[in-house]
Design a binder for these strands. Structure first.
Lengths: 184, 184
DNA sequence: TTAATCATGTAACACGTTACATGATTGC
DNA sequence: GCAATCATGTAACGTGTTACATGATTAA
């Protein structure tokens, strides 16, 4: 569902190749949606068949040939419709799916030392992610200068704030959990 | 991956039918892992073929017959191994996947009023989830009296704390986002 | 000379979702 | 009388993952 709409959203910024889309995806949307290269090509193919895209082969010398995709009117329409949906499915879209939390749930079956280690590693990862976010914020700021479209960058920043809040909450929770685990 | 291990974890508490497992799953693990009934039956079948489970058909009158699954030694071993894994994949297990955030990212394409509505609905849902959590906490407390195994319930409570922190963070973020969206 | 970048895909498999089928019993 | 609960599944489809293949150019 959302891989398709992510690709539509990116192509709305301008025509791109599958390769470029794959890169753009993993740079900008990766935090809240992940996609493999092979999947991107498959979906582009399907989307072209649905009439949301058209593609054109560009012959290059010195470099491999490439296929440039562009959004059609019907693709743009689909994007706008998806963005404007009444969103009855908000509950679905905010669902957590975490094998890590499942391990925590069943951690009573292993020894407390191991469980504590696992939680410390989680805390560490949150801290590292938070540290890495500074760079993301720099890159959004750079794009802001180039794009100079406040209507767009405003929302980019809001999603960035989410990731910050998410890791911060994870870290604070891990601290609480570690205190509980050590206190008994 | 984790559906299998969730089922192993539940069966470790005692033999159960597919139907009971499905219920238990959606009561206790649903916050961090969701599974459809049809998937549960399919996985149980696969797990029996791997030798992690055995099943026995129980004839009932007045009610449909049922198939009761039990953990084998090899299944228990698999559960413990999974729980004790060095967890190189912690980054994978804490990934976000949210169509909602993708919509926010591309919200510059629709009008601000619509985007604001969408964010308010998100905030509302977080608030509702938080309110509903009180009941979850009551039910864990009840189980605690029955199970009387602090080693287990301690970890159940820690995952419960996570869900609280998660919705709280979502709510606080939505407030910030709404302020940004209204302030321009 | 080795790795990275550019560029596109196929094939097979694993996992998740939707729709459908069956049929008795119990509570409102 | 109607919905919910008990209980099990099948079939088809959609999406995500892994592994593989190819081959030129360029920077360390």
């Amino acid at each position: 569902m959302s891989l398709k709409h992510g690709l539509l959203g990116l192509l709305n910024y301008g025509p791109m190749t599958g390769y470029e889309l794959d890169k753009a995806f993993s740079v900008s949307l990766d935090f809240f949606w992940q996609a493999k290269t092979s999947q991107v090509y498959r979906e582009l193919d399907a989307m072209e068949h649905s009439g949301w895209l058209t593609s054109e082969r560009v012959i290059q010398n010195e470099k491999p040939n490439k296929r440039v995709y562009s959004l059609t009117a019907s693709g743009k329409e689909e994007l706008i419709n998806w963005l404007s949906e009444p969103e009855a499915d908000i509950m679905d879209t905010m669902r957590v799916r975490s094998a890590f939390l499942m391990r925590v749930f069943f951690a009573g079956e292993i020894d407390d030392g191991q469980a504590l280690l696992m939680m410390r590693r989680y805390r560490q990862t949150c801290a590292e992610m938070l540290a890495a976010l500074d760079m993301v914020s720099d890159s959004v700021n750079q794009y802001e200068q180039v794009v100079a479209d406040e209507r767009k960058t405003k929302y980019w920043k809001i999603t960035e704030l989410y990731s910050e809040a998410y890791y911060q909450a994870g870290l604070a929770w891990a601290d609480k959990a570690i205190a509980i685990m050590e206190g008994e």
